[in-house]
Simulated scan of single mutants.
Amino acid sequence: MRAIVMTAPGAPEVLQLAEVPQPTIESDRQILVQLKAAGVNPIDTKLRSRGTFYGDRFPAVLGCDGAGIVAEVGAAVTKFQVGDRVYFCNAGLGGHPGNYAEFATVDERFVAHKPKTLSFAEAAAAPLVLITAWEALCDRGRISSGMKTLIHAGAGGVGHVAIQIAKLKGAKVCTTVSTTEKADFVTSLGADQVIFYPQTDFVKKVLDWTDSQGVDLAFDTVGGKNFAQTFAAVKIYGDLVTILSPSADTNWKIARDRNLRISLELMLTPMLQGLNKLQQHQAQILAECAQHIDRGDLKIHLAQTLPLAAAADAHRLIEAGSMIGKIALEI
C-alpha cells in the first residue's frame, strides 16, 4: 500500500511517499480500515522535526487521526461490520503505524461511527481536537451552564471546537484572536466576547467582561508566556487548563495567590500508556460528538485538503501558523 514514511527526524522533506506492506489484523478485537482521509495536527509536525516517542523505530508512519471504511473485522469484533464508516484517533506516534496511509488497523474499542453529515476529510480532521477540547473543558474544567470561560486562540483547530463545546454546555465564551477574519469566524461559532490579543491587554478585557472577577475557567492552547499571563484573568478558586507544558521559569505566584486549580491536558496519554479504558472513553467522546455534529450543533472547519502525497506541504502550512481550523489529507 502507499504511505507517507519518515526515516529520520527533520524538515518536511523527510516525509516521502513509499510502498509499504499493508497491515493485517493481529488480534480478535481489531478492525482493518481502508482510510479515505487523515487529519494533520501540530503534534505530527513536532514528531517529524524532533523525533517520535519511539525514536528507534524507523521508518515511521505519522498521523493520529483517520477516517475510512471498515474493510475487515477480527473474530471478536461486535461494534462494527465490513462497510461501516468510522473515525478515530489512534497510533501515529512512532510505534504502531499511523494514518498517513491507505490502510490502518485499530482496536474496535477505540473507534466511533463517522458523523453521517461529514465528508471523510472533515471527519478525519476532527478526532484529536474534539477529544482534546472535551477532556479539557468537561473532564478537567467541569464546565457547566452559566460559567464564564476564556478560550485562547479560538480560531485554531482545538479552539474552534472548544468554543462550540462550551456553548453546548451553556457557558459564556470569551476568546482571543489575531485578525478580523478570525473574529468573524469565532463570532459565527457563538463566541460572546472577542479580544484582539496583538493590540489589546487580554487580561484587562477579561476582567472588564467579568466585572473584575475573572473567568470561572480558562483554556490555554497557546502556552509560553500566555499561560502565566492568564493567571490574572481567572477568578479566585477558578480553573485553568493548558495543553502545553508550562516553562521551567513560570512564576506561579499569582496562580497561588488566587488559589487556582491548574490542569494539564494531553489526550495522547492513554495511547502512550496503554490505558485501554481511557481510550474507550475517548471513543465515547467521539460518538457523542458525532451526534452533536449530525444535529448541526457542532461543526468542524476544514480549511484545506491536500492529497496524501502532499503531506510535507500540509506540515509547512501548519508550521507557518495563523491557520483557521484544520487540514486533512485525502487518500
Rank of each mutant, 00 (worst) to 15 (best):
R50W: 10
R50G: 09
T52K: 03
F53H: 15
G55D: 04
D56R: 12
D56Q: 15
R57D: 13
R57K: 15
F58K: 13
F58Y: 15
P59M: 13
V61L: 09
V61F: 08
L62M: 08
L62V: 12
G63I: 05
G63T: 05
C64H: 06
C64P: 00
D65T: 10
G66T: 03
G66K: 00
I69F: 07
V70S: 12
E72H: 05
G74V: 06
A75G: 05
A75W: 05
A75Q: 14
A75D: 11
V77L: 12
V77H: 05
V77R: 01
T78A: 11
F80I: 13
F80H: 14
V82K: 15
G83M: 00
R85S: 14
V86T: 02
V86K: 02
F88D: 09
N90L: 02
G92V: 13
G92W: 09
L93C: 02
L93R: 00
L93E: 02
G94M: 02
G95D: 13
G95M: 06
G95T: 07
H96Q: 14
H96T: 14
G98R: 10
Y100L: 03
Y100G: 04
A101K: 04
A101R: 02
E102P: 00
F103T: 03
T105N: 06
T105M: 04
V106E: 00
R109Q: 14
F110H: 09
F110R: 05
A112M: 01
A112S: 09
H113M: 14
H113F: 14
H113E: 09
H113R: 15
K114C: 12
K114H: 08
P115N: 14
L118A: 10
L118Y: 12
S119I: 07
F120C: 10
A121N: 10
E122P: 07
E122S: 11
A123K: 00
A123G: 08
A124H: 04
A125C: 02
A125I: 05
A125M: 01
A126R: 04
A126P: 06
A126F: 11
P127R: 12
L128T: 13
V129Y: 04
V129P: 05
L130W: 04
I131G: 01
T132I: 07
A133H: 02
W134R: 03
W134T: 10
E135T: 09
A136S: 15
C138N: 13
C138I: 13
C138L: 14
D139N: 15
G141W: 02
R142H: 14
I143L: 15
I143P: 01
S144C: 13
S145W: 08
G146F: 04
M147F: 10
M147D: 13
T149H: 00
T149R: 00
L150Y: 06
L150W: 04
H152F: 03
G154L: 12
A155Y: 07
A155F: 04
G156M: 09
G156K: 09
G157I: 06
V161Q: 09
V161E: 08
A162K: 07
I163G: 07
I163K: 05
Q164C: 09
Q164F: 08
I165P: 03
I165D: 03
A166E: 03
K169M: 13
K169D: 03
V173S: 11
C174D: 00
T176V: 08
V177A: 09
T179L: 02
T179K: 01
K182M: 06
K182A: 13
A183F: 07
D184K: 15
F185C: 03
F185D: 02
